[in-house]
Design a binder for these strands. Sequence first.
DNA 1: CACTTTCTGTGCGATACCGCACATTATGGT
DNA 2: ACCATAATGTGCGGTATCGCACAGAAAGTG
Lengths: 248, 248
Amino acid sequence: MPGSHEPTENHILAALGAEGRQNVFPHLQLVPLSLGQVIYESGSLLPHVYFPTQGIVSLLYVMQDQSSAEIAVVGNEGLVGVSLFMGGETTPSRAVVQSVGSAFRLSAEILKKEFARGGELQHLLLRYTQALITQMAQTAVCNRHHSVEQQLCRWLLLSLDRLSTNELSMTQELIANMLGVRREGVTHAAGKLQEAGLIRYSRGHIVVIDRPGLEAKVCECYGVVKKESDRLLGSFGTYDSVRDVGAA
Amino acid sequence: MPGSHEPTENHILAALGAEGRQNVFPHLQLVPLSLGQVIYESGSLLPHVYFPTQGIVSLLYVMQDQSSAEIAVVGNEGLVGVSLFMGGETTPSRAVVQSVGSAFRLSAEILKKEFARGGELQHLLLRYTQALITQMAQTAVCNRHHSVEQQLCRWLLLSLDRLSTNELSMTQELIANMLGVRREGVTHAAGKLQEAGLIRYSRGHIVVIDRPGLEAKVCECYGVVKKESDRLLGSFGTYDSVRDVGAA
DNA sequence: CACTTTCTGTGCGATACCGCACATTATGGT
DNA sequence: ACCATAATGTGCGGTATCGCACAGAAAGTG
């Protein structure tokens, strides 16, 4: 898998039919996603959208006092830059690479042209955007009601779903920034998860050794997002893994 | 104004040009929005979308244990039911009338047909959806970082922006449900605002007597949402008030 | 008017998280 | 092997919010 870098590693691109591929693929440009890279800044115009094939991008809002909160994460199931086709051109959030990888980027111009044609791609992009909306809404709920430990579980699972390993490179400090809590809070929560035998970590390295255990501990927020994503995007159909695409 | 009930009281409908109006207005149906009315339930199929002309609709997520959190509010600047044209048909949230009023509803069928034409309405709906996304994202941030008092200020201002009066009918219990906090927490925060001379309230009735005072106390979240909404929707152009539509 | 219901105020103790200060431990560079 | 740096562990007081249990006060009902 490493080194291949086919556009079809991205689920949206993979779901395109022959015509869509013909119109879009020739304009795709493979770019690396390096750790900490800022794909777009709050309020900045985006010249491209990014379809990740590997890695994770965080959408986060940074406050005036520099504290921050993650709004959503994007992996190879989606794309970065929905505001381009939604018509606003910019958003008040920042997109940062949270886990290294790569993406195919597409110029705003081509994207908008193809979107305006109203075909398959438009459909796919809008459905993905709805999944993103669900993730944001659930983040709001989770921030309100659940403990740091539960939120850490949710965050780990969301990340895991977007990686091909059960291992992530991430310091507790950075996780704290994402969750919008103190670093010590993450240390505490991670300690409990490790004690419970669900994860193992050391210095910026986390290995999930009991995923079902995490799923048992996580709040309902994870399940809602996951289920809704599968419902909205699962029917893309070009997955190599089988999924439970239950209607309703 | 009461009794008129023109479709153009809704900003999206008002922004439609001659052609759009010709296609849409004949299919609009005026319906009342009564207090507590559930417009759609989590996961339910929507036969219509609703363009409010007056009143406020809350989008909220209700958890398994029946506690809840508001995701966003919709007034005559928008519409209820974006998942219809986004392609998902349903969402995991509930839409409840929070302040009485009325709306024009449009059948899903007509909406989707008109949306698919890719014209003006599509543009308007997508831009509005982006504004909604911003509101949700900022709700997540606010839930994470700000005090109940600040959140109450935000909530009051968001509501006020969607009403023609400075007065709202709402018990503290209900506000607590929206904010996802204890009723006592709202009592406490409202007490402080009253003490500061910003509002006056009694038994399900709140009067804002010092809006600038509220704006001075609210967190940045309100401003971000307001500014972004104005930017995205302000150019609809049929407002009767002048707005600062600053680019970038 | 009496009476019920609804809404608001208040006072606990418990808990989760914060902010800070600092100790400890791994890692990487030279 | 050494050292600087980065990452994690821990303790402590402060604060916000929670959950609960009532008390009072206003509105609605008969």
